[in-house]
């Protein structure tokens, strides 16, 4: 799982982290920005000092921020810029890593990978897995957030329910995978319950059937991921001013209309952010697939990530794996670009 991707410069940095002080405070603010808002004041300070014509201290002052940033710069250069350059460089050659004298082949590997039927299936599987996950994360997250936002039950039971609902988020993908392997085992408790209620007449091979496996891993991922939406949407719901609902009621709107014309539009910016972030992360999911089906049976649940991993560390085809890895990077960056653009637009 990744750190949350950021938004662009926020207008009210003073309130950043407000949700630290008050849990799900009424007006949650983005924490993610921040790099820019201070610039104006910083510039004016510098300007006034430049008039002193003291060149040496001025130079020193210019270097101070870099002194603070030096460990960051070193880490980022070594562990993000360099590796990305390397993986691109590998993708343009054959026999990298395993062989001391790789051959330059240009973009040949790209046409090989894009034409590979397994890659194409992995791409389709990834799109299905990601699309369905995002959709149902949103539906479940919204449903649970609305339930938890009700005024019909007291705050204590609500807090308890909220805790139970967040539970799946606490567990790591490895553990979620074996937990569901236990539950979904042909002799496991889920099949028992389905047989007992008469919903099915035979034991179901949830993870080893070619028809079902992709749906099953998608379901597991939906279970694992909705709390992130739920918590964010709950914060969003609590941030909607009561006056809006009151005004709506005065105009004679019923419950459904209030939801359709007040709640949903107010939540839309959060929903779009969530969906885009989730799309980027889910597309990269490796552990859950690796630990439940390993991409099988017979490629039925092969994802871009498992495909690339196997290509590199089972078949030792590091050149093709690098090509595939770079294609995945481009796909991720494409979605991320939309995300940043959308954030920019909503800031202006």
């Amino acid at each position: 799982m990744h750190a949350r991707a950021p938004e662009t410069a926020g207008q009210r940095p003073r309130q950043a982290f407000s949700n630290v002080q008050g849990l799900l405070s009424p007006a949650p603010q983005p924490v993610f920005q921040a790099c820019f808002p201070s610039e104006k004041t910083a510039l004016s300070t510098n300007h006034s000092q430049a008039t002193t014509f003291q060149k040496l201290p001025a130079l020193r002052k210019k270097l101070v921020p870099f002194a603070y940033l030096s460990p960051t710069l070193l880490l980022l250069a070594m562990l993000s810029l360099l590796p990305i350059a390397m993986v691109f460089f590998y993708s343009l050659q054959d026999n990298v890593i395993m062989n001391k004298t790789p051959q330059w082949v240009g973009f040949e590997n790209y046409s090989k990978i894009l034409g590979d039927s397994v890659f194409q299936q992995a791409l389709l599987n990834t799109l299905y897995f990601t699309g369905m996950s995002v959709l149902f994360h949103l539906l479940l997250g919204l449903a649970f957030a609305l339930l938890l936002n009700t005024r019909l039950i007291g705050p204590l039971p609500k807090a308890l329910f909220r805790m139970v609902y967040i539970l799946p988020w606490v567990f790591t993908a490895t553990i979620i995978a074996i937990l569901w392997r236990l539950l979904l085992n042909p002799n496991g408790v889920l099949n028992y319950l389905l047989l007992w209620t008469g919903l099915v007449s035979d034991k179901i091979e949830w993870l080893s059937s070619r028809q079902l496996a992709l749906h099953t891993v998608t379901f597991i991922n939906i279970w694992a991921g909705y709390p992130f939406y739920m918590v964010s949407l709950l914060a969003g719901l609590q941030g909607i001013p009561d006056e809006l609902y009151e005004a709506g009621r005065i105009d004679g709107a019923n419950g459904r209309q209030l939801f359709r014309f007040i709640t949903l539009p107010q939540l839309t910016p959060i929903i779009v952010s969530l969906a885009m972030l989730d799309f980027i992360w889910t597309m990269q999911q490796f552990t859950l697939i690796w630990m439940t089906t390993g991409g099988g049976p017979i490629r039925a649940t092969e994802m871009l990530s498992t495909f690339t991993y196997k290509l590199a560390f089972s078949s030792y085809e590091f050149s093709l794996a690098s090509t595939s890895a770079f294609v995945i990077l481009l796909l991720s960056m494409g979605v991320a670009w939309f995300y940043v653009r959308k954030q920019r637009a909503s800031d202006e």
Binding site: V87, I97, Q284, I328, M333
Partner: peptide, 16 residues
């Protein structure tokens, strides 16, 4: 760059 790094898929970085 700092923002962008978060969207880089781990699998892309794995081989390098």
């Amino acid at each position: 760059l700092i923002i962008g790094v978060q969207a880089v898929p781990p699998i892309t970085l794995l081989i390098p």
